[in-house]
Amino acid sequence: MLLIYCPYCEEERPELEFRHAGEAHIARPENIAGISDEAFERYFFIRSNPKGIAYERWRHIHGCARFFNAARDTVSDRFLATYRTGEPKPRLEGEGQ
């Protein structure tokens, strides 16, 4: 069970309080009704699924209920950072392309 730092509660809490919410930094297209099939596929289905540092969303569903972002190494499952929704990706050491 992971131990996750909620950037809103500013506390480490056990994973049972959280729900994983998929890859982060995938914005819903502004004019979604007008985008191509290919763009829709990219937005809704395609995932980077990296082996290494993944940017992902979590929700502190049984806590403050906020969505936030995290950078986690998917090989070691170690969190490198968690940060609030809307904040840019943090700069991390050892990050791949």
Binding site: R19, A21, A27, R28, R57, R59, A65, R66, F67, T85
Partner: peptide, 13 residues
């Protein structure tokens, strides 16, 4: 509710 919160917090804040 989770679905609504997701959109409210992240897409339509």
């Amino acid at each position: 509710l989770h679905h609504m919160e997701d959109y409210l917090q992240t897409e339509f804040p």
